[in-house]
């Protein structure tokens, strides 16, 4: 429990700073109102107002927490006002994109490690792909996947296909880089050992390279799942979607609902946290089965 104290102190500090920021940023509204009405304001007026505006510049924590609570607990999950509903929509694309991206990352890494030609041809493109801002690319992916109608053929929404591709586009790269490093991590002695058994390259892949790469793989999964979530959210912005956390943020900002926007933002952060903790547990279990010390 000793380790909980510093964590709590940091959280308390963040909340305190946040309140201070809320007062600071929301003060203008109170002062403007007073100036228009020709009255004077006290510091107390400013603080009290800052805590409870309908459209604050920076909503204080308790307001966000309240809207978050309403969105999570007080709406039926099927309601369009439920954050759980929107989170589930985003999660669906996150998962499909994460799975696709991880698969593509692993396959590319295997190709690059085993083929010098692929190493020289594929790797530069993989790096270039990550230098293009996803916001610039996302609309094109949306248009293309709509016009190609991949989703219709697969029996899912075209919008989900676009979001999946965008999420996968962001999440394959960390997996690719880590898997290349992981598959190349066995030292020459371990490869020599397999040579003395005259093991086939298939055997050396399954018995040495793949298990040796797993620690690298799990480390990359956490980065990849966070990237997939960002991809799914970004993918919701240009799709004209009305469902999903990204769509919720966009709508809230367009209709001047900062509280909703912040609530959606925190819901997204919460989802990311849950995903990363889940992957951490998976990693621990795998690690223990593979002789880890944890």
């Amino acid at each position: 429990m000793r380790s909980a104290l510093p964590v709590l102190v940091v959280i308390a500090a963040v909340i305190l700073l946040w309140y201070a920021g809320a007062v600071w940023l929301n003060a203008r509204w109170t002062i403007d109102q007073a100036a228009r009405a020709g009255t004077s304001v006290t510091v107390w007026d400013i603080v009290r107002d800052a805590m409870d505006q309908r459209r604050p510049l920076l909503p204080p924590p308790h307001q966000v927490a309240l809207v978050l609570w309403e969105g999570i607990a007080e709406e039926p999950v099927t309601s369009k006002r439920s954050l759980v509903w929107h989170a589930l929509v985003t999660l669906q694309a996150t998962f499909s994109g994460f799975l696709l991206g991880t698969l593509v990352g692993i396959l590319m890494a295997v190709g690059i490690v085993y083929s010098r030609v692929l190493d020289l041809t594929l790797m530069p493109w993989a790096i270039i792909s990550q230098t293009i801002p996803i916001v610039a690319l996302a609309p094109m992916i949306v248009v293309l996947s709509n016009s190609l109608g991949i989703g219709d053929r697969l029996g899912v929404e075209n919008r989900l296909v676009a979001k999946t591709i965008i999420a996968a586009y962001l999440s394959f790269f960390p997996v690719l880089v880590s898997m290349i490093k992981g598959l190349r991590s066995p030292d020459p002695m371990q490869l020599d050992l397999l040579a003395t058994y005259s093991a086939t390259s298939r055997q050396s892949f399954w018995k040495l390279r793949l298990p040796a790469s797993l620690p690298f793989f799990f480390a990359s999964l956490k980065v990849a799942v966070a990237a997939a979530l960002v991809g799914a959210i970004v993918g919701e912005l240009p799709t004209g979607a009305i469902d999903g956390l990204g769509a919720r943020m966009l709508v809230a900002s367009q209709f001047g609902q900062p509280l909703l926007m912040w609530a959606a933002l925190f819901a997204a952060a919460g989802v990311a946290g849950i995903l990363i903790v889940a992957l951490g547990l998976l990693e621990r279990r795998a690690g223990r089965r593979m002789g880890g010390r944890g």
């Binding site: 371990q190 003395t196 018995k207």
Partner: peptide, 27 residues
Amino acid sequence: YGYVFQAAGLYPWRTIAGNVRLPLEIM
């Protein structure tokens, strides 16, 4: 032949029995 290297070079993810079994699996 069997080859013993300078370092034991056991696979950390395999038990001792699993490591000894490795050449047998491959063969």
